[in-house]
Amino acid sequence: MKPVKVLIAILGLDQHEVGAVAIARILRDAGMEVIYAGRFNLPAGVVKTAIDEDVDVIGISCHSWEYLYYADELVELLAKEEAEIPVVVGGSVVTPGDARMLAEKGIAAAFGAGARPEEMVAAIRGLAAGRAAI
C-alpha cells in the first residue's frame, strides 16, 4: 500500500521550526512520507507544491498568529484548483477557540499544545483514507 504523503510547511515569516521538525519526524516514524517545505511559504506556494507532489494532507505548523489570516486563502486556493486536499493546522498557539474558528473556515483538523502524537497520526491517516475513498 502506498504510504500516506504529507506536506509540512510554515507560513509567512514565522521562524519557529521546533514543532514542524518534530511533527515531520513523528509522521515519518509512523510510516508516512513527509515533504518538508520548512519556513517562508505563502499559501500559493504550498498549494502548488501539494498538487505537484500529490500529497494526501497539508500540515501547517505554526507558532505565530499568521496562520489565522492565511487559512482562508489556503482553503480558497485549494477550492479554486479543485484540489481536495485536507489541511491540518498544529501548534501550541492554537487555542480551542481557534480550532473551532478554523473548522468553520474549512480546515480539516487543528491541534493545540495538548495534542498527543498518536492522536495527530490517527487523524492524518483518517483524512488520507477519506481522501483515497473519494
Binding site: G12, L13, Q15, S64, Y69, Y70
Partner: peptide, 22 residues
C-alpha cells in the same frame, strides 16, 4: 518582529500578517 529580525520592511508581502505581532 519577524520582518524586522529578517531585515525585511513591514510592507514586504510576506510580512502582511506578521507586522508587530512578535
Amino acid at each position: 518582529d519577524t520582518a524586522t529580525m529578517g531585515l525585511l520592511d513591514p510592507d514586504h508581502p510576506f510580512a502582511r500578517h506578521a507586522v508587530g505581532t512578535q
